[in-house]
Computed example of a mutant assay.
Amino acid sequence: MSSSNRVCIRSDAIPAPRFRYSPCVQIGPVVQVSGMVALDAATGQLATGGPGAETALILANLQKALPDYDVTLDDLLIARIFTTRFDAFADINAAWEAVFTAATTPPARTTVGVSALPLGATVEIEFSFVQS
């Protein structure tokens, strides 16, 4: 597949990237969303309240961008969660389960403990979708 099939997608519903990268790239039916930290769309500031609050805002921001990315949560193949606060995994998981309820089929998921994240965040999540 040539690079001419690669499309960078932006969404005005979420904060613009602070660094040079594509927030979302599509090649064929695969839609890859770069790692997201919990930036408030109105202020551009990192959310306060710890890992659970950050996770909730990341998932809310993702849901706002989904129409622009032309995917739904049902198209979500895997999410990769990175956290500096593995001791707060229960809070991260509670925010996750508020979105992916028992009535839905959740995507595959990986969670990795790391020593640091951009902008002092405690959680960063990247998402891989396959359009149906």
Rank of each mutant, 00 (worst) to 15 (best):
T83H: 02
A95F: 08
M36P: 00
D40Y: 01
V31E: 03
A102G: 14
F129R: 03
T111A: 13
S11P: 10
V99N: 04
F89N: 07
L57Y: 08
P15M: 13
L117P: 00
A116N: 10
Q63C: 13
R85M: 03
R6Q: 13
S11F: 06
E97W: 12
A90Q: 10
A79N: 04
R80I: 09
A121M: 06
R10F: 10
P107Y: 00
A88H: 12
V25E: 15
A94D: 14
S115A: 09
D91L: 11
P118H: 01
V130N: 03
P17I: 10
A95C: 12
A56S: 14
Q32P: 02
L46P: 12
G50L: 03
D40Q: 10
I92V: 14
L57N: 06
I27H: 05
A102Y: 11
L66D: 07
V114S: 02
P51C: 14
F89Y: 14
V71R: 08
F129V: 05
F19Q: 05
A79R: 05
G52Y: 05
G44W: 06
T72Q: 07
A102N: 13
F127E: 01
A60E: 11
W96V: 06
I27C: 04
S115L: 09
L117A: 08
V99D: 04
E126K: 07
S22F: 07
V71M: 09
G50R: 06
G52S: 01
V114Y: 02
I27M: 11
T43S: 15
T72F: 02
T110R: 11
D70F: 06
T83K: 04
N5S: 15
A88V: 00
A103G: 01
A116Q: 10
F86C: 02
T101P: 13
N5F: 11
V7Q: 15
I58E: 02
R109I: 13
R85G: 00
L66I: 08
A108S: 12
Y21V: 12
V130C: 10
I81A: 10
T48N: 02
V130K: 09
A65P: 13
S3D: 13
T83A: 08
S3H: 15
A98V: 03
P107E: 00
L62C: 10
L46N: 09
G49L: 01
R10K: 10
D12L: 10
Y69Q: 05
T55I: 11
T72S: 15
A103E: 15
L59C: 08
V37Y: 04
A94M: 01
P17V: 15
E97A: 12
N61Q: 10
V31Q: 08
Q131T: 12
L66F: 09
D40T: 11
V7M: 12
V99I: 15
V30G: 00
A102H: 04
D12F: 00
N5K: 15
F86Q: 04
V71L: 11
T111E: 01
T104H: 14
N61I: 02
A90H: 11
A103D: 15
V30I: 15
